[in-house]
């Protein structure tokens, strides 16, 4: 058993867990954050993507007990603030970028991270390439690509006008 002190969505959480516990199971179980989902066993689908110390990771392949004390975890539950949707969440809704909603948390976290890492600008081609680690079975990705561009634009990232309107 290992006792961890983590910063989860800005709050300090102290948990004791078995060494075999995966980060995703820690989040979904003891921490009660079920918005992070599990869609595969082999790190292919990206439904479990969260940010760990500011970087996106597949939380289904991270052993919780290997995290440093004070490690910072950001999940979908921490994205909206005071009930107001983040511009990326808003864009996903307005662009109809989600259907069943199961993969959506992983996509939203990935999209926000992507926008933050590309202050110089995003294009549809870059977005498609950067979405390589996330699977969606419902949307055909088209509206997700549109949403990432629209959300990024709302976050101040330069995006070709033509592609936002597409």
């Amino acid at each position: 058993m290992t006792t961890l002190t983590l910063s989860v969505n800005g709050s300090t959480r102290r948990v004791t867990t078995e060494d075999r516990t995966l980060l995703v199971d820690l989040l979904r179980g003891p921490l009660g954050l079920t918005g992070t989902h599990v869609g595969c066993d082999t790190s292919q689908c990206g439904a479990c993507v969260v940010r760990l110390n500011g970087e996106t990771v597949k939380s289904c392949s991270v052993l919780a007990a290997t995290l440093d004390d004070g490690a910072m975890v950001e999940t979908i539950e921490g994205v909206a603030s005071d009930g107001a949707l983040h511009p990326m969440q808003q864009a996903f809704s307005e662009c109809h970028a989600l259907q069943c909603g199961f993969c959506t948390p992983g996509f939203v976290i990935t999209a926000i991270d992507m926008a933050e890492r590309h202050p110089e600008g995003l294009s549809a081609a870059i977005v498609r390439a950067e979405l390589k680690g996330n699977l969606c079975r419902c949307t055909g990705y088209q509206n997700i690509v549109a949403a990432v561009l629209q959300g990024a634009a709302a976050m101040g990232v330069p995006v070709p006008e033509r592609e936002v309107s597409q």
Binding site: L52, K58, S61, V62, G133
Partner: peptide, 9 residues
């Protein structure tokens, strides 16, 4: 290598 999330680990 793989995808962004995997490359971060």
């Amino acid at each position: 290598v793989a995808d962004r999330h995997v490359r971060n680990r």
